[in-house]
Amino acid sequence: MTQYVLRRLIHSVFIIWGCATLVFFLLRLIPGDPVIQMLGPEYTPEAAEALRRKLGLDEPLQVQYVRWFGNILRGDLGGSIASGETVTGAIATGLPKTLSLAALSFLIAIVIAVPAGVAAALKRNTIVDYAASVVAFVGVSMPSFWFGIILILVFAVWLGWLPATGYAELTDDGFVEWLRRLILPSLAIGAGYAAILMRFVRAGLLEVLGSDYVRTARAKGARERTVIVRHALRNALIPVVTIAGIQLALLLSGAVVVETVFSIRGIGRILVGAIFDRDYPMVQGVILLVAVIFVLANLVVDIVYTFLDPRIHYG
């Protein structure tokens, strides 16, 4: 077990190193001279030379590469070309928003998916099951950003219940305002995620309900409710944890896109803005960050998984 965790840890370190290398070459792959691209209409030979020196592009490639890693390890991702702030600073202001969004989306997805999946499994092949299945199909096939626009249309424009855009700080504006502004974007992301999870809850529960230990629990006279919650659901949720981890990407990429819809300046909005500004250090920083978060999240899920199900042994 310790050995397994250790091996996964080392693997993750290598993957992150690979990601950083890939992101390093991202800037160097830009067709033509990246400095000319970045300066755009403000190009003068002197400005180009200055920028090239600032980005260290005038040095040999291996020197740049070593410096890139040294900087990353010190938490220095360089400075934004467009705004002058540091990339780490911009990320530090954006990341809490994105993480709040992802966390609330996750919560919403669980709250929808588990009861819906349980209902579909218990009422299998009834109208409840079919309805859940149809809704799940639509949910999986729907772009999160479109659902976000529809939510704005219904809850902000037509009903006027919730604000259409913006973000409120939890610390400054209080929980209610924070939630009011975050609920629609979180629902936009959480819906698709819930659709996927729901199908696995249903399938997992159906499988477990036919097992010996559920029959035993019933035979010894446990109440149906106890059988479902204590015996069946607990085991049915184990594969769901894996799926939840694997589909974390959905939350992250969902956040990136939905932030644009709701004008929330999280890391997704920062990334898209940086691409339009040709602010390559910022683009590099955000992409690297997302990859690292994703790799680490998957690592955590894998490790949690081994604790959840002691039957699983890794050689």
Binding site: F14, I15, I16, G18, C19, L22, V23, L26, L27, L29, I30, P31, A249, L250, L252, S253, V256, V257, L271, V272, I275, Y280, V283, I287, V290, A291, F294, V295
Partner: peptide
């Protein structure tokens, strides 16, 4: 397999956005 692992480390949309950012 290592190269594939690397691609896997980027969420699809992020990877696509990054590639479009570089190549236009």
């Amino acid at each position: 397999s290592r190269a594939i692992d690397l691609l896997w480390a980027f969420p699809v949309i992020i990877l696509a956005v990054g590639l479009v950012a570089v190549f236009g």
